[in-house]
Design a protein around this nucleic acid. Structure first.
Lengths: 132, 132
DNA sequence: GTAAACCTTCCTACCATGGGAAGGTCAAGC
DNA sequence: GCTTGACCTTCCCATGGTAGGAAGGTTTAC
């Protein structure tokens, strides 16, 4: 199976597959005589795993950990849960931060006329550095 | 006023001030005989504007627009509001996306024993690509 | 036999930030 | 006056994750 077919089957771009191999996230794929990488269904499975984890916002480093656990049949589920929980915590923190940003901006935008007049509390606030 | 003092007064790192100048976000600062950049209170004001906008998640491009509007005393507030609204929309979309991620992960983590046993719905889900 | 679609490696860019090297300049203390 | 340390300058490099493209080899379909 060529890299293109593996990409189509897994939803991970061929470019990204090569990249993941280059940074050591994936073990180097075996090569055929023409130096083409050769993939099997197992690799596709692994690629789908990676694609899905990326879509869930896991970093490459986290995915590396998860992959190692996934490859190890006997690993305790505690480890996986720990990584997932840490990731959830990180997500929640970022969500809270962005919600605070959005709330501030909504307040400012609500107070702005949004017409031909130049007075604008949004710029005033940015200039004065309120809510610090 | 040296770049270090401007950085301290504005809360924007000296490294970033030079960077913003290099990419054209800021006009080149005047130089003294020793080639040191020289800043005034007006520049500090502008830097605080940038720092605050960055903290609110505006991109450099957006800040460029906002700065141009800010420098233009007569601009209509409509323009500013438009940029802010667009930014709020982007923030809300990203928040919703991250909330969906967190919810999925919470479900999965809740179903995971988190003990010595290897069964783990988190890994199973990642492998199978559910919720696609 | 030729064209299209594929593969390979390598270089480049993005965005925002930061580390660090190598060298010039200023201020304080002795 | 001289040293020391803090500051400034430019320059290169790195991060993370993705993507575009160039230059060249291979396979497949017609």
């Amino acid at each position: 199976m060529n890299i293109g077919a593996a990409a189509a089957a897994s939803g991970v771009a061929a470019k990204m597959i090569r990249h993941y191999e280059a940074i050591g996230l994936l073990r180097p794929a075996p090569r055929r005589d023409n130096a083409y990488r050769d993939y099997g269904s197992r690799d596709v499975h692994e690629l789908r795993f990676i694609g899905r984890a990326r879509r869930l916002g896991f970093s490459i480093a986290e995915i590396g950990e998860l992959l190692a656990l996934w490859r190890d049949r006997g690993r305790p589920s505690r480890e996986v849960k720990r990584i997932a929980d840490a990731h959830i915590g990180g997500l929640e923190a970022r969500i809270a931060e962005m919600q605070a940003m959005a709330a501030t901006l909504r307040d400012l935008a609500a107070a702005c006329h949004g017409d031909d007049r130049p007075d604008c509390p949004i710029l005033d606030d940015l200039a004065l550095g309120g809510h610090e």
